[in-house]
Amino acid sequence: MTTTQNPTKGPVPDGARTRRRGLLLAIAAVVLVAAIVALVLVLNRDNGTSNASASAPTSTARDTSVIPNPPTPSPTGPTSDVDALPTPAAEVPLDSPAAVGNGVVASLTSIEGIQGTANGPGNVAGPAIRVTVHVENGTSAPITLAGAAINMYFGADATPASPLDDPSARPFGIDMIAPGQSADGVYVFSVPADQRDKVTVEVGYEAGAPLLLFSGPVR
């Protein structure tokens, strides 16, 4: 049997050398496997991150286009709170009737340009529009006109027209309209003769009731 000389400890038997070589190979194999496992874990982690990034939803610009306003619901009569702002109904032509929705119908039986006469302080004579408002009670109970409000606007900017205390003005003279009955009121407003391409008459027959709007040119 051959031996290997060790300068410190003397000759090393072949069996010991073989066992040591096997141990070194085993350690090298363990280190190699550990390195392979670590590499696989790193690759899997990177791949998972990449997949997560690829599957994440992309950010898109928010749609800022204008959404049309929802349609205004049909009016159904006065609100329970008389202090609440009434809902305006859709505009109708000056010569068309406008329904509140609860059986009350209003119409303008006459609208014309006149030369207004000034009566009382604060009134100024001049071009004016006189309108006759007709209100029909189609409900089953009396309705009040005590809080009736009639307004007028003119021009593209809907400038409020000033009421004029003209002698021909006759506001509603009754407080109540019985079922099936009607009433008329005459109102005069100062409106320049050259600004009548669009005139709007606003009728609120009762506090809290929807506002009826009549619009069109007055010649």
Score class of each variant (00 low, 15 high):
Ile27Ser: 10
Thr76Trp: 06
Lys9Thr: 13
Ala38Ser: 10
Phe214Asn: 06
Leu24Cys: 10
Val133Ala: 09
Thr60Ser: 12
Leu23His: 08
Leu212Glu: 08
Pro163Leu: 08
Thr2Glu: 15
Glu136Asn: 11
Val40Pro: 02
Ala146Asn: 12
Ser110Val: 02
Asp63Arg: 06
Asn6Ser: 15
Gly10Lys: 06
Ala207Arg: 14
Asn102Ser: 12
Asn6His: 14
Gly116Pro: 00
Val12Ile: 15
Lys9Asp: 10
Ser168Leu: 10
Asp165Met: 10
Ile150Asp: 03
Phe189Ala: 05
Ala26Trp: 12
Val201Lys: 04
Thr109Gly: 13
Phe172Pro: 03
Val191Pro: 00
Asp184Glu: 14
Leu85Tyr: 02
Pro75Met: 01
Asp63Met: 04
Gln115Phe: 05
Lys9Ser: 13
Met152Trp: 01
Asp166Asn: 11
Asn102Arg: 11
Ile129Leu: 13
Pro121Leu: 09
Gly155Tyr: 01
Gly204Gln: 15
Arg196Ile: 09
Met1Gln: 07
Met176Gly: 01
Ser162Ile: 11
Ser53Tyr: 13
Asp63Lys: 01
Pro217Trp: 04
Gly147Lys: 05
Leu41Tyr: 06
Ala106Tyr: 05
Leu108Trp: 03
Pro127Glu: 12
Val33Thr: 12
Ala38Cys: 03
Ala56Gly: 07
Asp197Arg: 13
Pro13Val: 09
Gly113Ile: 01
Gly103Thr: 08
Pro160Arg: 00
Thr2Trp: 12
Ile177His: 06
Thr117Leu: 11
Ala61Tyr: 02
Arg45Ala: 09
Thr139His: 08
Ala52Pro: 00
Tyr187Glu: 04
Gly173Trp: 03
Thr117Ser: 07
Gly173Ala: 15
Thr2Arg: 13
Gly103Leu: 07
Asn6Gly: 09
Val124Asp: 05
Arg130Thr: 08
Ala89Glu: 01
Asp166Thr: 01
Ala98Leu: 09
